[in-house]
Simulated scan of single mutants.
Amino acid sequence: MMAASVPVRVEIPAIGVDSELMRLGLQDDGTMEVPPAGFPAGWYDGAPTPGELGPAVIAGHVDWTTGPGVFYDLAQLAVGDEIRVGRADGTTPVFAVTAVQEHPKDEFPTAAVYGDIDHAGLRLITCGGDWDRSVRHYTANVVVFAELVHPG
């Protein structure tokens, strides 16, 4: 495990992602904030930092009114693909994808995403499923699960 250090960049070579990270907190209703536009991705500051014991969480948009978002191709990741997270302390831990799942929004796997784990994990979240015009959002979430394979 690694000591805490704020994440500042996420790179996912398999899908061409290279994004700065912004800090995300909680909204008034208790749900996680989302980045304000298609870019950048954001790190949820209520979770461990990437490399620490527990599940670090990074969220990003699949698309935006201006086109594809930072996590447009997130659902295309495969088991074993690498995710690198640059941290403020100069380290860049490397994570490997262990699962890519899609869940209806009303069946979001909260415990699996945010719950305690016995290793340094990473969760990437974006929207998925179909666009529901009546409520103006997607019907599902794509969640990528990854584990630390190399401390930075």
Rank of each mutant, 00 (worst) to 15 (best):
P48Q: 12
V70W: 08
A37V: 12
D106P: 00
C127A: 07
E102Q: 06
D118W: 04
L74S: 03
K105H: 02
L122G: 04
S5H: 13
F108A: 01
P7L: 15
P109L: 05
G115D: 04
P7I: 15
A88K: 15
M1R: 13
L122K: 06
V149N: 03
A37G: 12
T98H: 02
G69Y: 09
V143A: 00
A120S: 12
L24G: 00
G42H: 13
A112K: 03
G67H: 01
C127R: 06
P13V: 08
D130M: 08
G86R: 14
L24N: 01
R123Y: 05
A3Y: 14
G115A: 06
V85K: 13
T65R: 06
G69P: 03
H137Q: 14
D118G: 03
P50S: 11
G152V: 07
V94D: 04
A96W: 12
R87E: 13
F108K: 00
V100P: 02
A120I: 05
G80Q: 14
V70Y: 04
T91G: 09
F108T: 00
P151I: 03
L74M: 08
G69A: 07
I117A: 13
G121V: 07
C127I: 03
P104Y: 04
G16I: 05
G42D: 12
I117Q: 15
T91L: 14
V8I: 15
P55N: 09
G121N: 07
G25H: 09
G25W: 03
A3D: 15
F39W: 15
E82V: 10
T139Q: 07
D29P: 00
N141D: 14
E33Y: 09
M22K: 08
L21G: 02
L77W: 08
T98K: 04
E33G: 05
G60W: 04
F39L: 14
T91P: 00
E82A: 15
A78D: 13
I117L: 14
D118E: 12
G42P: 10
A56P: 00
G38A: 12
P109Q: 06
H103V: 00
F71S: 03
R123T: 05
V8Y: 09
A37I: 10
Q76M: 09
I58L: 11
P104N: 02
I12A: 02
